[in-house]
Each structure stands twice: as structure tokens, then as C-alpha cells.
Design a protein around this nucleic acid. Structure first.
Length: 188
DNA sequence: TTTACGATTAACT
DNA sequence: GTTAATCGTAAAG
């Protein structure tokens, strides 16, 4: 049984990343169940917080349980959950969700019908849920955000992270075992 | 001020 | 399998 109170955002990003699997995340009532996450920690070079605070990543240095939204490749928004205590600047990237709430809204925003392609990637799920830079540095336990814990602890698999060039060997990617909504399958 | 590049995606061959 | 799209950010000059 995973209750929302069991998710302590002041814990290490590894723990938070694993525990977020199965949790439902909504923005304005639209969203779904988290099936894939990645942990980032200032101790490793792949993290945006590795080089210290900047105008982009300041949200990571704020309180845990807040959002950190950044723009990737000039066109995609990516949603992160800040964890650890303020100043430590660790975070968890939400990489994929299983769409459950507001399917029509998400189809409209994404411009396609295939449920499987709606939210299977960090940029995709942000577009589907309407997340933009305006959602940066907001508390996740207050509107427009909403988190709903799952009834049972899900089976979680892990592997190496995707799309990075530093610290590529760390197995800090987590996913819901057997999910059809992952951005890429786990082979590890 | 200039420049190079990215925690990506989609559309190609 | 490869590559173009597209621009904010940060490091270099």
C-alpha cells in the first residue's frame, strides 16, 4: 500500500523516483499514472544542478515537492519533481505516464489518437497535460497540480538513463514493469 | 556579444 | 538506422 504521505520528497532522488512509479499526476484534472522516471542528483554531471544555481534551474534549489519545468532542444517542455532538502537540488524527471484522465483533452493537444503515443516521453506528456514554463517552481500538492497515490506498490524495474552524455552508466531510470506506455522498453 | 549545444521528437531513408 | 526542427541557456570571448 503506497499512501501519498509515504512519498517523502526530502528523500534522495533515487528513492523518490522509484516511489513515484504508479502515482497518478494531474494538471487541471488531466493526466495519468506515472510509469517511467529518472533520478538526477547534483553529485553527478548529467544533472542540471551539477554546476550550481542558474536562472533556469533555480527551482531545483528550492523546497522539495515543487515542480521544475525546463525547455529542451528549444521546443519541448520537461516536467521534474524537486526532491531533497532546499539547496541540495536533486530532482526526478517524469518521462512517461499512462493516460487515464482527460483523454480527449490530451488527444486535442497532441493532435493524435493513439493513446500509446500520447504521453510516452517527457516532451509528449508535457504537451498532453499542457505543462509549460508557467508551471515551473509550483507546489505539486496544490492546483493546478494534483498527485494521487496508488493502492498497491507496483513492480518496478530499473535501467540506465536516456538522452544524456554524462554519467551514462548510472542505473537511475525506473519504470513500471511490463507497461505498454514506456518511452523505451527496459532491456537491462 | 557571440556561439555551441541539449534530461527530445518526428519525419525521413 | 539518420537527421532536421528550433531556441533558451550558459560558457566563452
Amino acid at each position: 500500500m503506497t499512501r501519498l504521505a509515504d512519498i517523502d520528497f526530502s528523500a534522495a532522488s533515487l528513492d523518490v523516483a522509484r516511489r513515484l512509479i504508479g502515482v497518478t499526476v494531474l494538471v487541471d484534472g488531466v493526466g495519468g499514472r506515472i510509469v517511467e522516471t529518472e533520478a538526477y542528483d547534483p553529485g553527478e554531471a548529467a544533472s542540471h544542478s551539477f554546476h550550481g544555481p542558474t536562472p533556469r534551474n533555480f527551482a531545483m534549489f528550492g523546497p522539495p515537492g515543487f515542480s521544475y519545468v525546463y525547455r529542451s532542444h528549444g521546443l519541448h517542455w520537461c516536467l521534474n519533481v524537486v526532491c531533497r532538502e532546499p539547496g541540495h537540488a536533486a530532482g526526478v524527471l517524469i518521462r512517461a505516464i499512462e493516460p487515464t484522465h482527460g483523454l480527449e483533452r490530451m488527444r486535442q493537444r497532441r493532435g493524435l489518437d493513439d493513446v500509446r503515443l500520447l504521453c510516452s516521453g517527457p516532451g509528449r506528456l508535457s504537451q498532453a497535460m499542457g505543462v509549460t514554463g508557467a508551471h515551473n517552481n509550483l507546489p505539486l500538492d496544490a492546483p493546478p497540480f494534483e498527485l494521487i497515490a496508488c493502492a498497491e506498490a507496483p513492480a518496478v524495474v530499473s535501467g540506465v538513463r536516456i538522452g544524456i552524455s554524462k554519467a551514462v552508466e548510472l542505473p537511475w531510470r525506473f519504470g513500471l514493469a511490463g507497461s505498454r506506455f514506456l518511452s523505451k522498453p527496459f532491456r537491462d
